[in-house]
């Protein structure tokens, strides 16, 4: 705010700016000193509240499979140490709570509100630490798309296809299409490696490069194919079907019409 005002009144003397700055700094600094004590107390209280809510939700919705103490059961793996990121991904994309056993947990409409997801994540993380929900700065899509694209081709394209259109894995499992996936979930997927996806920790792909991948995926989403409709980016199969059905179909229809006319 203060920056904007300075820019607008460009004719003010530098001294006045300095004075203003000092006053501003002094007041904010003082206020900060005054409030931090209570603020931390308050956050811990809020945090505890979240964890408690999370526990209740967990017991009601997840414990049947994951166990009361997250230790896992026959029907669900242990969640000790999976971290807030994993819970936020699994619940935030609707995969959890799991509804039916299948080759892999499917995406479904999300069943909880944002606060509830956060509560669940906080609760699971409070039992044992694990990967955190990523910082906002990595999710803006303001990285380097070219670097992201290259890393994506090397690490992700074999399962998700170069354009993130998805692909088949063995035994009915598949890597889903990545269009429409929120940046935070993309990051968390890399961090936690859901199900058949490998984990890409920060040593494999640095947080900056993860941000670059997100930038690339955002680029694909925001820029439709420069060549026209992309036929689902499914590659030559879609193109072949298209030319047989619509290309040759149209031409044959025209030949039939032409010869019918002349007879």
């Amino acid at each position: 705010m203060s920056k904007k005002r300075t820019a607008k009144t460009g004719r003010r003397s530098p001294l006045a700016t300095l004075a203003l700055l000092t006053v501003g700094l002094a007041t904010t600094g003082g206020a900060y000193a005054l409030f931090t004590g209570t603020a931390t107390a308050e956050t811990t209280a809020v945090h505890q509240q979240l964890v408690d809510d999370g526990e209740k939700l967990f017991v009601a919705n997840c414990a049947t499979c994951h166990g009361m103490d997250l230790e896992g059961t026959e029907t669900g793996p242990s969640l000790v140490g999976v971290g807030a990121a994993s819970v936020d991904f699994q619940v935030g994309t609707g995969r959890m709570p799991l509804q039916q056993q299948g080759p892999q947990a499917e995406e479904k409409p999300v069943q909880f509100t944002e606060e509830q997801v956060q509560a669940l994540a906080e609760y699971v993380a409070s039992i044992a630490p694990g990967p955190e929900i990523p910082e906002e700065e990595y999710l803006t899509g303001k990285g380097d798309a070219a670097v992201g694209a290259e890393i994506f081709r090397i690490n992700c394209a074999m399962c998700h296809n170069v354009a993130g259109a998805g692909g088949a894995l063995t035994e009915g499992k598949y890597a889903p299409a990545l269009t429409g996936t929120e940046a935070v979930h993309v990051y968390e997927a890399m961090l936690t490696g859901p199900q058949n996806m490998p984990v890409f920790n920060d040593a494999n792909i640095s947080p900056e490069d993860k941000a670059n991948i997100i930038t690339y995926l955002k680029y694909l989403e925001e820029n439709p194919s420069p060549g026209g409709f992309d036929l689902g980016n499914l590659g030559p199969v879609a193109e072949g079907l298209f030319i047989w059905i619509f290309g040759l179909g149209a031409i044959v229809a025209i030949t039939v019409w032409l010869t019918a006319k002349s007879n």
Partner: peptide
């Protein structure tokens, strides 16, 4: 669009994309 070469990136022997097929 046909063959969006810009998606595929330059050839490099290590990566392979899912859904790699020849023309029909």
């Amino acid at each position: 669009t046909i063959n969006p070469i810009w998606n595929y990136g330059p050839y490099d022997p290590s990566p392979v994309s899912a859904g790699t097929q020849p023309d029909w």
